[in-house]
Design a protein around this nucleic acid. Structure first.
Lengths: 112, 112
DNA sequence: ATTTTATTCCTGATTGCAGTAGAAATAAAT
DNA sequence: ATTTATTTCTACTGCAATCAGGAATAAAAT
Protein backbone atom coordinates (compact mmCIF):
# COMPACT_ATOMS: atom_id res chain seq x y z
CA UNK A 1 0.00 0.00 0.00
CA UNK A 2 1.30 3.39 -0.95
CA UNK A 3 1.28 6.36 1.36
CA UNK A 4 -1.49 8.95 0.88
CA UNK A 5 -3.92 6.11 1.42
CA UNK A 6 -6.32 5.83 4.31
CA UNK A 7 -5.77 4.25 7.70
CA UNK A 8 -8.43 2.09 9.32
CA UNK A 9 -9.65 4.80 11.65
CA UNK A 10 -9.41 7.50 9.02
CA UNK A 11 -11.68 5.51 6.75
CA UNK A 12 -14.33 5.22 9.45
CA UNK A 13 -14.15 8.94 10.16
CA UNK A 14 -14.40 9.69 6.45
CA UNK A 15 -17.47 7.49 6.04
CA UNK A 16 -19.05 9.24 9.01
CA UNK A 17 -18.40 12.66 7.47
CA UNK A 18 -20.10 11.48 4.30
CA UNK A 19 -23.03 10.14 6.28
CA UNK A 20 -23.52 13.27 8.40
CA UNK A 21 -23.38 15.68 5.49
CA UNK A 22 -23.66 19.28 6.72
CA UNK A 23 -23.55 18.20 10.34
CA UNK A 24 -20.05 16.80 10.06
CA UNK A 25 -18.00 18.54 12.73
CA UNK A 26 -15.65 17.11 15.33
CA UNK A 27 -17.89 16.53 18.31
CA UNK A 28 -20.83 15.27 16.28
CA UNK A 29 -18.60 12.85 14.38
CA UNK A 30 -17.38 11.59 17.75
CA UNK A 31 -20.94 10.97 18.95
CA UNK A 32 -21.98 9.24 15.77
CA UNK A 33 -18.96 6.93 15.65
CA UNK A 34 -19.20 6.11 19.33
CA UNK A 35 -22.74 4.92 18.76
CA UNK A 36 -21.81 2.88 15.72
CA UNK A 37 -18.70 1.31 17.21
CA UNK A 38 -20.28 1.01 20.64
CA UNK A 39 -17.07 2.28 22.15
CA UNK A 40 -15.79 5.53 23.64
CA UNK A 41 -13.53 7.75 21.56
CA UNK A 42 -11.53 10.88 22.36
CA UNK A 43 -12.32 13.99 20.37
CA UNK A 44 -8.63 14.56 19.84
CA UNK A 45 -8.17 11.34 17.92
CA UNK A 46 -10.91 12.42 15.55
CA UNK A 47 -9.57 15.94 15.20
CA UNK A 48 -6.13 14.69 14.26
CA UNK A 49 -7.57 12.23 11.76
CA UNK A 50 -9.61 15.06 10.22
CA UNK A 51 -6.57 17.32 10.02
CA UNK A 52 -4.43 14.63 8.38
CA UNK A 53 -7.12 13.87 5.84
CA UNK A 54 -7.63 17.53 5.00
CA UNK A 55 -3.89 17.82 4.31
CA UNK A 56 -4.06 14.76 2.07
CA UNK A 57 -6.97 16.11 0.05
CA UNK A 58 -9.73 13.84 1.32
CA UNK A 59 -11.60 16.60 3.10
CA UNK A 60 -12.23 20.33 2.95
CA UNK A 61 -13.59 22.41 5.80
CA UNK A 62 -15.27 25.72 6.57
CA UNK A 63 -16.64 27.35 9.70
CA UNK A 64 -20.38 27.23 10.18
CA UNK A 65 -22.44 29.83 11.99
CA UNK A 66 -22.52 30.04 15.80
CA UNK A 67 -25.07 27.85 17.55
CA UNK A 68 -27.85 29.11 19.78
CA UNK A 69 -26.94 26.60 22.44
CA UNK A 70 -24.51 27.01 25.30
CA UNK A 71 -20.89 27.00 24.34
CA UNK A 72 -21.57 28.37 20.90
CA UNK A 73 -18.10 28.14 19.48
CA UNK A 74 -18.19 28.08 15.70
CA UNK A 75 -18.21 24.59 14.28
CA UNK A 76 -15.73 23.60 11.67
CA UNK A 77 -17.75 21.63 9.15
CA UNK A 78 -16.00 19.01 7.02
CA UNK A 79 -16.89 17.92 3.52
CA UNK A 80 -15.64 14.92 1.57
CA UNK A 81 -13.89 15.59 -1.73
CA UNK A 82 -14.74 13.59 -4.85
CA UNK A 83 -11.29 12.03 -4.58
CA UNK A 84 -12.23 10.74 -1.12
CA UNK A 85 -15.44 9.17 -2.40
CA UNK A 86 -13.53 7.49 -5.18
CA UNK A 87 -11.00 5.98 -2.77
CA UNK A 88 -13.74 4.88 -0.36
CA UNK A 89 -15.52 3.12 -3.19
CA UNK A 90 -12.30 1.41 -4.29
CA UNK A 91 -11.77 0.09 -0.79
CA UNK A 92 -15.33 -1.11 -0.60
CA UNK A 93 -14.99 -2.98 -3.87
CA UNK A 94 -11.72 -4.61 -2.85
CA UNK A 95 -13.16 -5.86 0.43
CA UNK A 96 -16.37 -7.03 -1.21
CA UNK A 97 -14.37 -9.09 -3.72
CA UNK A 98 -12.27 -10.62 -0.95
CA UNK A 99 -15.37 -11.60 0.98
CA UNK A 100 -16.76 -13.23 -2.16
CA UNK A 101 -13.60 -15.33 -2.39
CA UNK A 102 -13.82 -16.65 1.13
CA UNK A 103 -15.13 -20.22 1.05
CA UNK A 104 -18.73 -20.51 2.16
CA UNK A 105 -18.15 -22.83 5.09
CA UNK A 106 -15.86 -20.30 6.66
CA UNK A 107 -17.98 -17.27 5.93
CA UNK A 108 -20.93 -18.91 7.61
CA UNK A 109 -18.99 -19.83 10.74
CA UNK A 110 -18.64 -16.19 11.70
CA UNK A 111 -22.42 -15.80 11.98
CA UNK A 112 -22.28 -17.59 15.30
CA UNK B 1 -10.72 2.61 18.64
CA UNK B 2 -9.12 0.39 21.18
CA UNK B 3 -5.91 -1.48 20.67
CA UNK B 4 -6.04 -5.20 19.78
CA UNK B 5 -8.16 -4.26 16.80
CA UNK B 6 -7.03 -4.54 13.23
CA UNK B 7 -5.18 -2.00 11.11
CA UNK B 8 -6.16 -1.32 7.53
CA UNK B 9 -3.43 -3.42 6.00
CA UNK B 10 -3.78 -6.17 8.58
CA UNK B 11 -7.43 -6.54 7.72
CA UNK B 12 -6.67 -6.97 4.04
CA UNK B 13 -4.01 -9.56 4.79
CA UNK B 14 -6.39 -11.38 7.10
CA UNK B 15 -9.14 -11.48 4.48
CA UNK B 16 -6.63 -12.82 1.99
CA UNK B 17 -5.58 -15.59 4.38
CA UNK B 18 -9.22 -16.55 4.77
CA UNK B 19 -9.70 -16.54 1.00
CA UNK B 20 -6.60 -18.61 0.21
CA UNK B 21 -7.33 -21.27 2.80
CA UNK B 22 -4.54 -23.88 2.86
CA UNK B 23 -2.45 -21.90 0.39
CA UNK B 24 -2.04 -18.96 2.74
CA UNK B 25 1.69 -18.40 3.09
CA UNK B 26 3.74 -15.21 2.79
CA UNK B 27 4.70 -15.13 -0.84
CA UNK B 28 1.34 -16.36 -2.11
CA UNK B 29 -0.51 -13.81 0.01
CA UNK B 30 1.72 -11.15 -1.51
CA UNK B 31 0.86 -12.25 -5.05
CA UNK B 32 -2.84 -12.41 -4.34
CA UNK B 33 -3.02 -9.00 -2.69
CA UNK B 34 -0.88 -7.38 -5.37
CA UNK B 35 -3.38 -8.56 -7.96
CA UNK B 36 -6.36 -7.37 -5.98
CA UNK B 37 -4.91 -3.99 -5.05
CA UNK B 38 -3.22 -3.59 -8.41
CA UNK B 39 -0.14 -2.39 -6.60
CA UNK B 40 3.29 -3.75 -5.64
CA UNK B 41 3.91 -4.88 -2.09
CA UNK B 42 7.03 -6.00 -0.24
CA UNK B 43 7.02 -9.48 1.26
CA UNK B 44 8.40 -8.07 4.49
CA UNK B 45 5.38 -5.88 5.08
CA UNK B 46 3.16 -8.93 4.82
CA UNK B 47 5.42 -11.06 7.00
CA UNK B 48 5.38 -8.52 9.78
CA UNK B 49 1.62 -8.09 9.57
CA UNK B 50 1.25 -11.87 9.80
CA UNK B 51 3.57 -12.01 12.79
CA UNK B 52 1.73 -9.23 14.60
CA UNK B 53 -1.61 -10.86 13.99
CA UNK B 54 -0.40 -14.23 15.19
CA UNK B 55 0.74 -12.60 18.43
CA UNK B 56 -2.65 -10.96 18.82
CA UNK B 57 -4.55 -14.20 18.31
CA UNK B 58 -5.98 -13.59 14.87
CA UNK B 59 -3.89 -16.25 13.18
CA UNK B 60 -2.16 -19.54 13.87
CA UNK B 61 0.54 -21.06 11.70
CA UNK B 62 2.31 -24.31 10.92
CA UNK B 63 4.95 -25.38 8.46
CA UNK B 64 3.76 -27.22 5.38
CA UNK B 65 5.73 -29.86 3.50
CA UNK B 66 8.54 -28.94 1.13
CA UNK B 67 7.58 -28.13 -2.45
CA UNK B 68 8.86 -29.98 -5.48
CA UNK B 69 9.71 -26.74 -7.20
CA UNK B 70 12.96 -24.87 -7.05
CA UNK B 71 13.68 -23.15 -3.80
CA UNK B 72 11.72 -25.62 -1.78
CA UNK B 73 11.95 -23.93 1.56
CA UNK B 74 9.12 -25.02 3.82
CA UNK B 75 6.15 -22.73 3.69
CA UNK B 76 4.64 -21.37 6.84
CA UNK B 77 0.91 -21.71 6.34
CA UNK B 78 -1.41 -19.37 8.20
CA UNK B 79 -4.93 -20.04 9.40
CA UNK B 80 -7.54 -17.60 10.68
CA UNK B 81 -8.89 -18.13 14.18
CA UNK B 82 -12.60 -17.93 14.91
CA UNK B 83 -11.89 -14.75 16.82
CA UNK B 84 -10.46 -13.24 13.65
CA UNK B 85 -13.53 -14.13 11.64
CA UNK B 86 -15.73 -12.59 14.28
CA UNK B 87 -13.81 -9.30 14.23
CA UNK B 88 -13.76 -9.25 10.43
CA UNK B 89 -17.50 -9.68 10.37
CA UNK B 90 -17.97 -6.89 12.91
CA UNK B 91 -15.94 -4.53 10.76
CA UNK B 92 -17.91 -5.50 7.71
CA UNK B 93 -21.20 -4.80 9.46
CA UNK B 94 -20.05 -1.41 10.73
CA UNK B 95 -18.93 -0.29 7.30
CA UNK B 96 -22.07 -1.63 5.64
CA UNK B 97 -24.22 0.36 8.05
CA UNK B 98 -22.23 3.51 7.41
CA UNK B 99 -22.62 3.11 3.67
CA UNK B 100 -26.36 2.71 4.14
CA UNK B 101 -26.42 6.05 5.96
CA UNK B 102 -24.67 7.95 3.22
CA UNK B 103 -27.23 9.98 1.27
CA UNK B 104 -28.03 8.48 -2.11
CA UNK B 105 -26.92 11.42 -4.20
CA UNK B 106 -23.45 11.14 -2.77
CA UNK B 107 -23.20 7.38 -2.95
CA UNK B 108 -24.10 7.48 -6.62
CA UNK B 109 -21.48 10.08 -7.44
CA UNK B 110 -18.69 7.66 -6.65
CA UNK B 111 -19.85 5.29 -9.39
CA UNK B 112 -18.27 7.60 -11.95
C1' DA C 1 30.25 -30.84 -7.50
C1' DT C 2 29.97 -26.03 -7.29
C1' DT C 3 27.60 -22.12 -9.01
C1' DT C 4 23.49 -19.99 -10.36
C1' DT C 5 18.76 -19.14 -9.94
C1' DA C 6 14.24 -19.54 -7.68
C1' DT C 7 11.33 -19.66 -3.65
C1' DT C 8 10.60 -18.69 0.75
C1' DC C 9 11.07 -16.74 5.57
C1' DC C 10 12.91 -13.38 8.75
C1' DT C 11 14.94 -9.03 11.01
C1' DG C 12 16.23 -4.15 11.81
C1' DA C 13 15.30 0.46 10.87
C1' DT C 14 12.33 4.27 9.39
C1' DT C 15 7.94 6.80 8.50
C1' DG C 16 3.53 7.97 9.61
C1' DC C 17 -1.13 6.67 11.71
C1' DA C 18 -3.78 6.16 16.10
C1' DG C 19 -4.95 7.70 20.39
C1' DT C 20 -4.29 10.49 25.00
C1' DA C 21 -4.25 14.41 27.82
C1' DG C 22 -5.06 18.73 28.39
C1' DA C 23 -5.33 23.64 27.14
C1' DA C 24 -7.88 27.36 24.81
C1' DA C 25 -11.99 29.78 22.82
C1' DT C 26 -16.72 30.98 23.04
C1' DA C 27 -21.10 31.85 25.02
C1' DA C 28 -25.40 30.55 27.56
C1' DA C 29 -26.98 29.85 32.53
C1' DT C 30 -26.78 30.77 37.15
C1' DA D 1 -18.62 37.28 37.45
C1' DT D 2 -18.50 32.51 37.97
C1' DT D 3 -19.93 28.20 36.44
C1' DT D 4 -21.07 25.04 32.97
C1' DA D 5 -21.50 23.41 28.19
C1' DT D 6 -19.79 23.05 23.55
C1' DT D 7 -16.34 23.08 20.57
C1' DT D 8 -11.51 23.37 18.46
C1' DC D 9 -6.68 22.65 18.64
C1' DT D 10 -1.83 21.04 19.80
C1' DA D 11 1.99 18.34 21.76
C1' DC D 12 3.32 13.91 22.81
C1' DT D 13 3.63 8.66 22.91
C1' DG D 14 3.13 3.98 21.05
C1' DC D 15 2.52 1.03 17.57
C1' DA D 16 1.20 -0.18 12.72
C1' DA D 17 2.95 -0.02 7.95
C1' DT D 18 6.66 -0.24 5.04
C1' DC D 19 11.27 -0.78 3.18
C1' DA D 20 15.76 -2.81 2.42
C1' DG D 21 18.34 -6.39 2.75
C1' DG D 22 19.90 -10.87 4.64
C1' DA D 23 19.48 -15.96 5.45
C1' DA D 24 17.81 -20.67 4.40
C1' DT D 25 16.70 -24.19 1.20
C1' DA D 26 16.82 -26.73 -2.90
C1' DA D 27 16.27 -27.46 -7.94
C1' DA D 28 18.73 -26.44 -12.37
C1' DA D 29 22.56 -25.29 -14.96
C1' DT D 30 27.30 -25.50 -15.82
Amino acid sequence: MKKTKLGEFEELVLLTVAALQHDAYGVEIKRELETRLNERLSVGSIQSALKRMEEKGFLTSAFGEATLKRGGKRKRIYYTTSHALKVLEEMRAIRADLWKSIPLIVSELKMI
